[in-house]
Design a protein around this nucleic acid. Sequence first.
DNA 1: GTCTATATTGTGATAGAC
DNA 2: GTCTATCACAATATAGAC
Lengths: 202, 202
Amino acid sequence: MARLSFREQVLRVREDAIVASVNRLLAEKGFDLMTVDEVAADVGIAKASLYKHFPSKEALAAAAMVRLLEQTRSIVESQDAERAVDRLASVTRWALHLQIAGEMPSLPSQNSTLRAELLANKAYLDLLMDVSERLGEWIVQAQADGDIDPALPPEVALYTIFARACDPVPAYLKAGGRYSDEQIVEWVLAVCMNGLRPRAAG
Amino acid sequence: MARLSFREQVLRVREDAIVASVNRLLAEKGFDLMTVDEVAADVGIAKASLYKHFPSKEALAAAAMVRLLEQTRSIVESQDAERAVDRLASVTRWALHLQIAGEMPSLPSQNSTLRAELLANKAYLDLLMDVSERLGEWIVQAQADGDIDPALPPEVALYTIFARACDPVPAYLKAGGRYSDEQIVEWVLAVCMNGLRPRAAG
DNA sequence: GTCTATATTGTGATAGAC
DNA sequence: GTCTATCACAATATAGAC
């Protein structure tokens, strides 16, 4: 990796702060209700300055998603459990914790402008492919191990796991106020992984 | 039920048409991206006329949700399978079919204005209570039958079933284009109900 | 109750000085 | 690259004639 000049480092730190704010606001209010004014105020700079770093609101959201996928890849690569199903459960648990802590950015799947921007973002696509392939391998392995139903197409299992990132169930249970975050995560995780298991014969 | 005058019937039909349009647009674009202009154009009346029927965009969305819950209650009441778990699966299958057909209205859970409007809507709350209580009874029965894990709080199962209404997995699988709607619904349903099952001992 | 036309506001994005 | 000030426009909501 090339050395960065002091100027470039300052720039990098500033942009990290922006993306962190965007991440938090996306988790809190979602893309449509998050305003660029809010982001600027949260970072503590003028809106026009924001636009010198990122050309559009969509680009801000994309940067937050790239950040999330980088964290995800890092978590995926750090898994060392022997059984593939345990590695899958561990990554899913991490995502659920992020979500229940209010740090999981969420994007509307229906916004076509945003979709187009993401699909044009090479960093985003590469990371998504990377993570998907790794998880896909684990799923196939878990099917061979008898931990995931072999009759299920791997992509069904993959999407089911990805979908935990925007599962509304944790938030509903948390709103009830009767259970700890830990307990909620474990229940949702158990229901998720249990759903992928092979059905008992008979 | 009181007889309606001709005038009132016309009004009723018009409002049904409005709510049906709102339902479709909510399913297609979601609340934030749906504009009142679109609704008016879709129904074929002027926007100002729309506002004579419904006082706000939020009220339009609420009416669509009431309509959905009325349909849900009707489906719930028509269930006659012997086992509670089969009745639960059948209702969930209906919701998944509605969703994959693009007829399931979806609201952002983060919009506080919309939340407040819904929580102030007695018809909505009554229907929600009604449906929840009935499904809750079935869940408790299914736990007694050994079809749902008795260690799971009934509300976890209830929310898990409710969440199928906004599950992104069917849309992702449909976008892949490799499987029929029927096949997708059956997989997602199976994973859902399997997840609630008791874990095998050992 | 329906229409056309308009008021009002919120917000994404930019101009131009420094 | 940062700021203040402003534009441009979309979208909710309403006025007022018929």
